[in-house]
Design a protein around this nucleic acid. Structure first.
Lengths: 154, 154
DNA sequence: GTAATATACGACTAAACGAATCGTACATAA
DNA sequence: TTATGTACGATTCGTTTAGTCGTATATTAC
Protein backbone atom coordinates (compact mmCIF):
# COMPACT_ATOMS: atom_id res chain seq x y z
CA UNK A 1 0.00 0.00 0.00
CA UNK A 2 3.01 2.30 -0.19
CA UNK A 3 3.96 4.92 -2.72
CA UNK A 4 7.54 4.84 -3.97
CA UNK A 5 10.20 7.33 -3.08
CA UNK A 6 10.16 8.47 -6.68
CA UNK A 7 6.59 9.67 -6.28
CA UNK A 8 7.44 11.32 -3.00
CA UNK A 9 10.46 13.11 -4.47
CA UNK A 10 8.58 14.10 -7.60
CA UNK A 11 5.82 15.71 -5.55
CA UNK A 12 8.32 17.56 -3.38
CA UNK A 13 9.99 19.02 -6.45
CA UNK A 14 6.69 19.90 -8.07
CA UNK A 15 5.54 21.88 -5.06
CA UNK A 16 8.78 23.82 -5.05
CA UNK A 17 8.12 24.65 -8.68
CA UNK A 18 4.60 25.75 -7.78
CA UNK A 19 6.16 28.11 -5.27
CA UNK A 20 8.36 29.54 -8.04
CA UNK A 21 5.65 29.55 -10.68
CA UNK A 22 6.31 32.34 -13.21
CA UNK A 23 9.47 33.33 -11.36
CA UNK A 24 12.17 31.66 -13.44
CA UNK A 25 13.73 28.20 -13.50
CA UNK A 26 14.96 26.28 -10.47
CA UNK A 27 18.01 24.03 -10.86
CA UNK A 28 18.02 20.39 -9.85
CA UNK A 29 20.79 21.25 -7.42
CA UNK A 30 18.47 23.67 -5.66
CA UNK A 31 15.44 21.39 -5.87
CA UNK A 32 17.46 18.56 -4.36
CA UNK A 33 18.87 20.73 -1.59
CA UNK A 34 15.58 22.24 -0.54
CA UNK A 35 13.70 18.96 -0.54
CA UNK A 36 16.39 16.70 0.85
CA UNK A 37 16.55 14.45 -2.20
CA UNK A 38 19.66 12.85 -3.82
CA UNK A 39 20.56 15.13 -6.71
CA UNK A 40 21.44 12.54 -9.36
CA UNK A 41 18.27 10.65 -8.56
CA UNK A 42 16.17 13.75 -8.89
CA UNK A 43 17.71 14.43 -12.31
CA UNK A 44 16.15 11.23 -13.57
CA UNK A 45 12.83 12.07 -12.04
CA UNK A 46 12.74 15.57 -13.53
CA UNK A 47 13.51 14.10 -16.92
CA UNK A 48 10.58 11.75 -16.64
CA UNK A 49 8.32 14.60 -15.67
CA UNK A 50 9.53 16.59 -18.64
CA UNK A 51 8.54 13.77 -20.97
CA UNK A 52 5.16 13.77 -19.25
CA UNK A 53 4.78 17.46 -20.03
CA UNK A 54 4.45 18.55 -16.43
CA UNK A 55 7.69 20.50 -16.35
CA UNK A 56 9.92 22.17 -18.95
CA UNK A 57 13.67 22.57 -18.85
CA UNK A 58 15.80 25.63 -19.49
CA UNK A 59 19.27 24.56 -20.56
CA UNK A 60 22.64 26.11 -19.85
CA UNK A 61 23.91 28.26 -17.06
CA UNK A 62 21.11 29.81 -14.98
CA UNK A 63 18.93 27.03 -16.35
CA UNK A 64 16.75 24.60 -14.49
CA UNK A 65 13.13 23.52 -14.47
CA UNK A 66 9.83 25.34 -14.54
CA UNK A 67 6.26 24.14 -14.30
CA UNK A 68 4.97 23.60 -17.84
CA UNK A 69 1.29 23.59 -16.91
CA UNK A 70 -0.80 25.48 -14.42
CA UNK A 71 -0.89 24.03 -10.88
CA UNK A 72 -4.64 23.56 -11.32
CA UNK A 73 -4.15 21.15 -14.20
CA UNK A 74 -1.77 18.67 -12.60
CA UNK A 75 -3.24 16.19 -10.14
CA UNK A 76 -1.46 14.20 -7.49
CA UNK A 77 -3.20 11.14 -8.90
CA UNK A 78 -1.47 11.60 -12.25
CA UNK A 79 1.91 11.71 -10.57
CA UNK A 80 1.25 8.68 -8.39
CA UNK A 81 -0.07 6.69 -11.30
CA UNK A 82 2.91 7.52 -13.47
CA UNK A 83 5.63 6.65 -10.96
CA UNK A 84 3.91 3.83 -9.11
CA UNK A 85 1.91 2.34 -11.93
CA UNK A 86 -0.78 0.44 -10.13
CA UNK A 87 -2.80 2.23 -7.52
CA UNK A 88 -5.24 -0.61 -6.98
CA UNK A 89 -4.57 -2.74 -3.94
CA UNK A 90 -5.12 -5.81 -6.08
CA UNK A 91 -4.77 -6.20 -9.84
CA UNK A 92 -8.23 -7.66 -10.38
CA UNK A 93 -9.81 -4.30 -9.50
CA UNK A 94 -7.46 -2.18 -11.60
CA UNK A 95 -8.66 -0.23 -14.62
CA UNK A 96 -5.27 0.31 -16.18
CA UNK A 97 -3.52 -2.82 -14.96
CA UNK A 98 -6.40 -5.24 -14.81
CA UNK A 99 -5.45 -8.87 -14.62
CA UNK A 100 -8.04 -11.59 -14.56
CA UNK A 101 -8.09 -13.95 -11.60
CA UNK A 102 -9.50 -17.45 -11.53
CA UNK A 103 -11.37 -16.68 -8.30
CA UNK A 104 -13.33 -13.71 -9.57
CA UNK A 105 -16.73 -15.40 -9.80
CA UNK A 106 -16.53 -16.54 -6.18
CA UNK A 107 -14.17 -13.97 -4.66
CA UNK A 108 -15.53 -12.59 -1.42
CA UNK A 109 -13.28 -9.64 -0.77
CA UNK A 110 -12.88 -8.14 -4.22
CA UNK A 111 -15.59 -5.57 -3.59
CA UNK A 112 -13.85 -4.31 -0.49
CA UNK A 113 -10.63 -3.61 -2.35
CA UNK A 114 -12.61 -2.06 -5.15
CA UNK A 115 -14.08 0.35 -2.60
CA UNK A 116 -10.62 1.13 -1.27
CA UNK A 117 -9.39 1.82 -4.77
CA UNK A 118 -12.37 4.02 -5.60
CA UNK A 119 -11.91 6.10 -2.51
CA UNK A 120 -8.18 6.54 -3.02
CA UNK A 121 -8.66 7.25 -6.68
CA UNK A 122 -11.25 9.92 -6.07
CA UNK A 123 -9.17 11.65 -3.44
CA UNK A 124 -5.96 11.63 -5.46
CA UNK A 125 -7.52 12.60 -8.78
CA UNK A 126 -9.40 15.52 -7.29
CA UNK A 127 -6.29 16.89 -5.60
CA UNK A 128 -4.45 19.34 -7.84
CA UNK A 129 -1.09 20.89 -7.09
CA UNK A 130 -2.95 24.16 -6.62
CA UNK A 131 -5.54 22.84 -4.17
CA UNK A 132 -2.97 20.97 -2.11
CA UNK A 133 -0.57 23.91 -2.10
CA UNK A 134 -3.24 25.94 -0.33
CA UNK A 135 -3.71 23.46 2.51
CA UNK A 136 -2.20 23.65 5.96
CA UNK A 137 0.49 21.28 7.22
CA UNK A 138 -0.66 18.32 9.30
CA UNK A 139 -0.47 18.69 13.06
CA UNK A 140 1.30 15.76 14.75
CA UNK A 141 -1.79 14.67 16.70
CA UNK A 142 -3.73 14.23 13.50
CA UNK A 143 -1.63 11.26 12.48
CA UNK A 144 -2.73 9.35 15.53
CA UNK A 145 -6.33 10.51 15.58
CA UNK A 146 -7.73 7.26 14.21
CA UNK A 147 -6.26 5.25 17.03
CA UNK A 148 -7.81 7.53 19.61
CA UNK A 149 -11.26 7.25 18.07
CA UNK A 150 -11.24 3.47 18.22
CA UNK A 151 -9.77 2.59 14.86
CA UNK A 152 -6.69 0.41 14.73
CA UNK A 153 -4.62 2.93 12.88
CA UNK A 154 -2.25 1.73 10.24
CA UNK B 1 -0.37 0.68 -3.15
CA UNK B 2 -0.61 -3.07 -3.65
CA UNK B 3 -1.28 -5.85 -1.22
CA UNK B 4 1.01 -8.86 -1.38
CA UNK B 5 0.08 -12.25 -2.69
CA UNK B 6 0.44 -13.58 0.83
CA UNK B 7 -2.43 -11.39 1.97
CA UNK B 8 -4.48 -12.40 -1.03
CA UNK B 9 -3.87 -16.12 -0.45
CA UNK B 10 -4.47 -15.79 3.29
CA UNK B 11 -7.86 -14.19 2.70
CA UNK B 12 -8.84 -16.80 0.14
CA UNK B 13 -8.06 -19.57 2.63
CA UNK B 14 -9.84 -17.78 5.47
CA UNK B 15 -13.05 -17.47 3.50
CA UNK B 16 -12.97 -21.16 2.69
CA UNK B 17 -12.66 -21.82 6.39
CA UNK B 18 -15.62 -19.50 7.04
CA UNK B 19 -17.58 -21.62 4.62
CA UNK B 20 -16.67 -24.73 6.63
CA UNK B 21 -17.07 -23.09 10.02
CA UNK B 22 -18.04 -25.75 12.61
CA UNK B 23 -17.93 -28.46 9.94
CA UNK B 24 -14.51 -29.99 10.59
CA UNK B 25 -10.96 -29.23 9.46
CA UNK B 26 -9.92 -28.50 5.89
CA UNK B 27 -6.48 -29.68 4.75
CA UNK B 28 -3.95 -27.37 3.14
CA UNK B 29 -4.11 -29.58 0.09
CA UNK B 30 -7.81 -28.84 -0.24
CA UNK B 31 -7.45 -25.14 0.60
CA UNK B 32 -4.73 -24.81 -2.03
CA UNK B 33 -6.71 -26.65 -4.67
CA UNK B 34 -9.93 -24.74 -4.15
CA UNK B 35 -8.27 -21.34 -4.09
CA UNK B 36 -5.63 -21.88 -6.75
CA UNK B 37 -2.68 -21.28 -4.43
CA UNK B 38 0.72 -23.11 -4.35
CA UNK B 39 0.39 -25.71 -1.61
CA UNK B 40 3.81 -25.40 0.01
CA UNK B 41 3.45 -21.63 0.08
CA UNK B 42 0.05 -21.85 1.71
CA UNK B 43 1.49 -24.13 4.40
CA UNK B 44 3.72 -21.26 5.51
CA UNK B 45 0.84 -18.82 5.47
CA UNK B 46 -1.46 -21.06 7.50
CA UNK B 47 1.28 -21.49 10.07
CA UNK B 48 1.58 -17.73 10.44
CA UNK B 49 -2.16 -17.42 10.86
CA UNK B 50 -2.08 -20.12 13.52
CA UNK B 51 0.50 -18.12 15.49
CA UNK B 52 -1.80 -15.13 15.14
CA UNK B 53 -4.63 -17.15 16.65
CA UNK B 54 -6.93 -16.84 13.68
CA UNK B 55 -6.89 -20.52 12.82
CA UNK B 56 -6.18 -23.73 14.70
CA UNK B 57 -4.66 -26.92 13.34
CA UNK B 58 -5.75 -30.50 13.71
CA UNK B 59 -2.81 -32.83 13.22
CA UNK B 60 -2.58 -36.24 11.65
CA UNK B 61 -4.65 -37.97 9.06
CA UNK B 62 -8.03 -36.31 8.50
CA UNK B 63 -6.44 -33.20 9.97
CA UNK B 64 -6.28 -29.70 8.63
CA UNK B 65 -7.22 -26.21 9.70
CA UNK B 66 -10.29 -24.68 11.29
CA UNK B 67 -11.18 -21.12 12.12
CA UNK B 68 -10.16 -20.45 15.73
CA UNK B 69 -12.31 -17.36 16.18
CA UNK B 70 -15.74 -16.33 15.01
CA UNK B 71 -15.90 -14.76 11.52
CA UNK B 72 -17.24 -11.60 13.19
CA UNK B 73 -14.09 -11.12 15.19
CA UNK B 74 -11.48 -11.26 12.42
CA UNK B 75 -11.13 -8.18 10.23
CA UNK B 76 -9.60 -7.91 6.79
CA UNK B 77 -7.53 -5.03 8.15
CA UNK B 78 -5.87 -7.29 10.68
CA UNK B 79 -4.87 -9.71 7.95
CA UNK B 80 -3.58 -7.00 5.64
CA UNK B 81 -1.63 -5.34 8.41
CA UNK B 82 -0.02 -8.59 9.48
CA UNK B 83 1.13 -9.74 6.06
CA UNK B 84 1.84 -6.38 4.47
CA UNK B 85 2.98 -4.45 7.49
CA UNK B 86 2.49 -0.88 6.42
CA UNK B 87 -0.88 0.16 5.12
CA UNK B 88 -0.07 3.86 4.95
CA UNK B 89 0.85 5.16 1.53
CA UNK B 90 3.76 7.00 3.10
CA UNK B 91 5.61 6.27 6.34
CA UNK B 92 5.21 9.77 7.78
CA UNK B 93 1.45 9.19 8.17
CA UNK B 94 1.70 5.72 9.66
CA UNK B 95 0.66 4.95 13.23
CA UNK B 96 2.47 1.66 13.54
CA UNK B 97 5.38 2.34 11.21
CA UNK B 98 5.80 6.07 11.63
CA UNK B 99 9.08 7.49 10.45
CA UNK B 100 9.90 11.14 10.80
CA UNK B 101 10.64 13.11 7.66
CA UNK B 102 12.66 16.29 7.44
CA UNK B 103 9.98 17.90 5.30
CA UNK B 104 7.10 17.48 7.73
CA UNK B 105 6.81 21.11 8.81
CA UNK B 106 6.52 22.30 5.23
CA UNK B 107 5.13 19.22 3.49
CA UNK B 108 2.19 20.07 1.27
CA UNK B 109 0.79 16.70 0.43
CA UNK B 110 1.05 14.86 3.71
CA UNK B 111 -2.56 15.60 4.60
CA UNK B 112 -3.79 14.07 1.39
CA UNK B 113 -2.07 10.78 2.06
CA UNK B 114 -3.27 10.90 5.62
CA UNK B 115 -6.82 11.11 4.26
CA UNK B 116 -6.17 8.18 1.97
CA UNK B 117 -4.83 6.17 4.86
CA UNK B 118 -7.75 7.04 7.09
CA UNK B 119 -10.27 6.02 4.49
CA UNK B 120 -8.54 2.74 3.71
CA UNK B 121 -8.03 2.00 7.36
CA UNK B 122 -11.66 2.58 8.23
CA UNK B 123 -12.91 0.41 5.39
CA UNK B 124 -10.56 -2.47 6.09
CA UNK B 125 -10.92 -2.44 9.86
CA UNK B 126 -14.69 -2.40 9.71
CA UNK B 127 -14.81 -5.32 7.31
CA UNK B 128 -15.06 -8.62 9.15
CA UNK B 129 -14.86 -12.04 7.55
CA UNK B 130 -18.56 -12.39 8.38
CA UNK B 131 -19.66 -9.11 6.83
CA UNK B 132 -17.63 -9.66 3.68
CA UNK B 133 -18.76 -13.25 3.36
CA UNK B 134 -22.30 -12.01 3.07
CA UNK B 135 -21.58 -9.63 0.19
CA UNK B 136 -22.25 -10.27 -3.46
CA UNK B 137 -19.48 -10.79 -6.03
CA UNK B 138 -18.45 -7.76 -8.07
CA UNK B 139 -20.02 -7.40 -11.51
CA UNK B 140 -17.42 -6.77 -14.25
CA UNK B 141 -18.79 -3.31 -15.11
CA UNK B 142 -18.28 -2.14 -11.58
CA UNK B 143 -14.51 -2.27 -11.94
CA UNK B 144 -14.64 0.30 -14.70
CA UNK B 145 -17.38 2.48 -13.26
CA UNK B 146 -15.04 5.22 -12.11
CA UNK B 147 -13.70 5.76 -15.59
CA UNK B 148 -17.18 6.16 -16.98
CA UNK B 149 -18.14 8.75 -14.39
CA UNK B 150 -15.20 10.95 -15.23
CA UNK B 151 -12.56 9.67 -12.84
CA UNK B 152 -9.29 8.47 -14.22
CA UNK B 153 -9.61 5.04 -12.77
CA UNK B 154 -6.50 3.43 -11.44
C1' DG C 1 2.48 -52.17 13.79
C1' DT C 2 2.74 -49.70 9.75
C1' DA C 3 1.38 -47.08 5.85
C1' DA C 4 -0.93 -43.07 4.46
C1' DT C 5 -1.95 -38.57 5.22
C1' DA C 6 -1.50 -34.58 7.89
C1' DT C 7 0.94 -30.41 10.09
C1' DA C 8 5.68 -28.13 11.82
C1' DC C 9 9.67 -25.68 10.99
C1' DG C 10 13.86 -24.10 9.17
C1' DA C 11 16.66 -23.24 5.30
C1' DC C 12 17.31 -21.99 0.74
C1' DT C 13 16.80 -19.62 -3.87
C1' DA C 14 15.64 -17.07 -8.19
C1' DA C 15 13.80 -13.15 -10.02
C1' DA C 16 12.11 -8.66 -9.68
C1' DC C 17 12.16 -4.20 -7.79
C1' DG C 18 13.65 0.05 -5.56
C1' DA C 19 16.79 3.37 -4.99
C1' DA C 20 20.07 5.07 -6.25
C1' DT C 21 25.11 6.05 -8.61
C1' DC C 22 28.26 6.97 -12.51
C1' DG C 23 30.12 8.48 -16.88
C1' DT C 24 29.85 11.35 -20.29
C1' DA C 25 27.79 14.27 -23.91
C1' DC C 26 25.69 18.55 -24.92
C1' DA C 27 23.87 23.59 -24.03
C1' DT C 28 24.32 28.38 -22.70
C1' DA C 29 25.21 32.53 -20.08
C1' DA C 30 28.62 35.32 -17.86
C1' DT D 1 36.35 29.63 -22.38
C1' DT D 2 34.82 28.13 -18.18
C1' DA D 3 31.37 27.43 -14.80
C1' DT D 4 27.04 25.76 -14.38
C1' DG D 5 23.34 23.65 -16.25
C1' DT D 6 20.42 19.57 -18.48
C1' DA D 7 20.32 14.78 -21.29
C1' DC D 8 20.66 10.01 -21.38
C1' DG D 9 22.18 5.44 -20.96
C1' DA D 10 24.36 1.95 -18.18
C1' DT D 11 25.38 -0.13 -13.98
C1' DT D 12 25.17 -1.40 -9.15
C1' DC D 13 23.47 -3.08 -4.88
C1' DG D 14 20.55 -4.29 -1.24
C1' DT D 15 15.82 -5.80 -0.20
C1' DT D 16 11.62 -7.95 -0.95
C1' DT D 17 8.58 -11.20 -3.08
C1' DA D 18 7.16 -15.45 -4.00
C1' DG D 19 8.06 -19.18 -3.76
C1' DT D 20 10.65 -24.39 -3.17
C1' DC D 21 12.75 -28.18 -0.50
C1' DG D 22 14.02 -31.38 3.13
C1' DT D 23 12.89 -33.43 6.98
C1' DA D 24 10.68 -34.17 11.56
C1' DT D 25 6.55 -35.15 13.96
C1' DA D 26 1.56 -36.33 14.78
C1' DT D 27 -2.68 -39.07 13.99
C1' DT D 28 -5.71 -42.39 12.14
C1' DA D 29 -7.29 -46.31 9.22
C1' DC D 30 -6.20 -50.75 8.30
Amino acid sequence: MKISRKTDYALRALFTLVEHYHRGPVSVRELARRNDVPKRFLEQIMLEMKVKGWVASVMGKQGGYVLAKSPESITVGQVVRHFDGVMSPIACVSVHHYQPCSQEPICRFRRLFLDVRNHASRLLESATLASIYQGKPVRPEEVFALELTGGAGI
